[in-house]
Design a binder for these strands. Structure first.
Lengths: 139, 139
DNA sequence: CTTAATTAGTTAGGTTTTGCCTAATGATAA
DNA sequence: TTATCATTAGGCAAAACCTAACTAATTAAG
């Protein structure tokens, strides 16, 4: 019992290690190995919100507008976002993710997806269903 | 196939969410909800190394000794570490983790352990073995 | 239909915190 | 007395915020 628990722990630890390597690889491929969690969180917010403006991002993150201007400036230098003027209102600018920005924003999920993909490859249909059944019991 | 993959993804995402809640709870219980990753990494190093001195920690982390003095000062204020003079050499100080420091250093692993514990509780012996068998194929 | 008020974002200039450094100093050991 | 371990003093650069004053575009009011 105790043994099985320990073994399961090690198996999961290994999966998490692989997942972590995957997301580090994504950051490294984007040339952004030293991006901060805070920055990733900003990019995630931009990704989730869709048509997001400077004012709205300031509101959501509870920062002043100048802070957002600065943050976005840095992201533009990093080639993670660009600005797009709203066609209906010339005062408004939308913050848009570049391909790189989107990769970063979704790195966490995508790295898990990669690990799951590997799992699918190592198991046949029957085993896959079995695994799902077991994990369903847990959740 | 695609469906099963997506479902498996969601199941794992859920497990990771639970694990994350567990580790956040640990930090919060220690009154250190806004501890940084860097600080956690230092505490992990101290935990792993055992009898570690200021000079050695400076060496491992590639920092100057004054930087380490400062870092440790902050940890002492946070009640995560204390200093213990070496009985054999009065110049040397060991950096020791307090209970709180150890909890933080091990939060990541312990939160995974908690999740695994829950899994064990929801499955019988046979199912546990089956799960191990499937994950072993993957790793 | 122009002018005044409002709104969106920027600039300028500042603060605080973090995370590091070198050089000099004190205490202990060899 | 020379070397080693840690500390103090003082400083630097970057991060992550801020307020106040500004520009440009829109809306509303006379």
């Amino acid at each position: 019992m105790r043994e099985r628990e320990e073994y399961l722990f090690e198996l999961f630890e290994n999966l998490l290690r692989i997942k972590n390597e995957c997301s580090c690889k994504i950051f490294s491929e984007c040339g952004l190995s030293d991006i901060t969690i805070r920055q990733i969180a900003y990019l995630k917010t931009i990704d989730e919100q869709g048509d997001i403006t400077f004012s709205r991002l300031a509101e959501i993150t509870r920062n002043s507008k100048p802070t957002i201007t600065e943050t976005i400036k840095k992201f533009i230098q990093m080639e993670c976002v660009y600005r797009e003027r709203c066609p209906d209102d010339g005062r408004v600018l939308y913050i848009r993710l570049t391909g790189k920005g989107q990769r970063i924003a979704r790195a966490e999920r995508d790295s898990l997806r990669q690990v799951i993909g590997r799992m699918m490859d190592s198991l046949d249909t029957h085993e896959q269903e079995h695994l799902i059944g077991l994990l369903k019991k847990v959740g």
